[in-house]
Simulated assay, not measured.
Amino acid sequence: MKKCLVVDDSSVIRKVARRILEDIGFEIIEAEDGQKALDACKASMPDAVLLDWNMPVMDGLEFLAKLREEEGGDEPIVVFCTTENDVAHITKAIRAGANEYIMKPFDREILSAKFQEVGLV
């Protein structure tokens, strides 16, 4: 079973994402900030990361840069999931190593389609 790390400071977003992703066959790990997410990746690298931008302790962009520096950190498919929707943010995320970008709020259809596009389901 593929593993997805859901990183968001909102427990509601994590819960919604968990339900959708479990339904399409993922084992879910959760983290509420970038540092906890990085620690989780060091313990066991996931196949995918659903990543929020704005979080306490370490934001999504900083987490992504550190993830990509880790051994095996180039392998997870990273999908940014955020309210930041301007071209500058999207460009920054892709340049930092994100594979895809979706906007909040999301639903089952959007999340499932995006994970299909990147070859995860």
Rank of each mutant, 00 (worst) to 15 (best):
C4M: 15
A98V: 04
E22T: 08
I24F: 14
E32V: 05
C4Y: 00
E109R: 11
S11D: 10
K66S: 08
N99Y: 01
R68C: 13
L61D: 04
Q116H: 09
T83C: 05
P76C: 08
T82A: 10
E75Q: 10
R19G: 12
F115R: 05
D39S: 11
A88V: 06
K15T: 04
Q35W: 02
A37C: 07
N54V: 15
G119M: 08
I20Q: 07
G25P: 08
E70W: 01
M58T: 03
E75K: 13
N85A: 14
V49E: 13
R14A: 03
K42I: 14
K36V: 01
L111G: 04
I94V: 08
A88Y: 04
P46A: 12
E75L: 10
C41V: 06
G25C: 06
E69I: 05
L67S: 11
M1H: 08
L38Q: 02
A98D: 03
V57H: 04
S112F: 03
G119A: 06
L50T: 14
Q116I: 11
A43Y: 04
E117P: 01
N99Q: 15
E84Y: 09
L21D: 05
P46F: 11
C4D: 00
P76H: 08
G119P: 04
I24K: 13
R18F: 02
P46I: 11
D52T: 14
L21S: 02
E69V: 05
A17F: 04
T82Q: 05
L120T: 07
A113T: 15
S10A: 07
R95N: 08
F63Q: 02
E69Y: 10
D33R: 13
I24T: 06
V121L: 15
D52S: 12
F26C: 12
E109H: 14
L5G: 06
D47H: 15
G97Y: 12
S112T: 15
Q116P: 00
D107L: 13
L61N: 06
L50N: 15
T82Y: 10
M1L: 10
V57G: 02
E109F: 14
K2F: 02
A98P: 08
F26P: 10
A40E: 13
C4H: 00
Y101A: 02
D86T: 09
G60S: 00
D86K: 14
E22R: 11
M55P: 05
G60M: 05
C4Q: 01
L64E: 00
K3A: 01
V78T: 06
R108C: 05
D107K: 13
E71L: 12
L5A: 03
P76L: 03
M58N: 00
L64I: 04
E32L: 03
V12L: 14
A17R: 04
I24H: 13
C4R: 00
